[in-house]
């Protein structure tokens, strides 16, 4: 994982659920991550897919990723190029899914200090999110969890553990 990430903000509200991040009607019919990316945020922000650029950062309110456990709601954003998600809080299965896909997630209130299109910098080592208006701090992830992200996600992590 990079220690710093600078990217352009996509700002969203509270309680964004996995049905609007990746609609349920595709969950058993689309298996290719690149095809998943074409439907990212389709029912919330239809303009997202065409305009997202690699390294962009989603900044949201509370309870990002609530609802269904579908992991495609992480994979579609990662494939679309999202570099990190910063939210006031995350739904717990989404939180685990993001770790397992090695998509960096940051829990802090940066949504209070950004507008759409702002450039912000996440410093994972220092635990800060710098926005044009102020600097937000966040607690580090537990060591066990950080190790999974640093290994590149749960599958590489388990392969390492099992010596494969």
């Amino acid at each position: 994982m990079k220690t710093r990430l600078t990217g352009r903000v996509w700002k969203y509200g509270d309680d964004v659920n996995t049905d609007v991040i990746f609609p349920g009607k595709y969950t058993y019919s689309i298996a290719d991550p690149r095809e998943m990316a074409l439907h990212a945020l389709e029912d919330l922000d239809p303009g997202f897919v065409a305009a997202v650029r690699p390294g962009d950062i989603i900044v949201a309110g509370k309870n990002w990723g609530c609802g269904s456990s579908r992991e495609q709601a992480v994979v579609c954003l990662k494939e679309a190029g999202v570099g990190a998600i910063v939210a006031r809080s995350f739904a717990r299965i989404y939180f685990r899914n993001a770790i397992n896909q090695a998509l960096p997630i940051v829990t802090c209130d940066a949504v209070d200090g950004v507008e759409n299109g702002d450039e912000i910098t996440i410093d994972f080592a220092a635990g800060t999110v710098k926005t044009p208006r102020r600097v937000f701090t966040f607690p580090p992830l537990p060591a066990e969890v950080l190790e999974i992200i640093e290994d590149g996600g749960l599958i590489p992590h388990v392969r390492k553990q099992l010596g494969r």
Binding site: E71, N100, Q101, E144, G153, L154, I155, V158
Partner: peptide, 20 residues
């Protein structure tokens, strides 16, 4: 408790899971 797909695959392989 609910988990994601990748995590389910890891549980199949290792028989274990971390929980907070």
């Amino acid at each position: 408790a609910g988990i994601g797909r990748t995590e389910a695959a890891a549980v199949m392989a290792t028989g274990e899971i971390w929980l907070r």
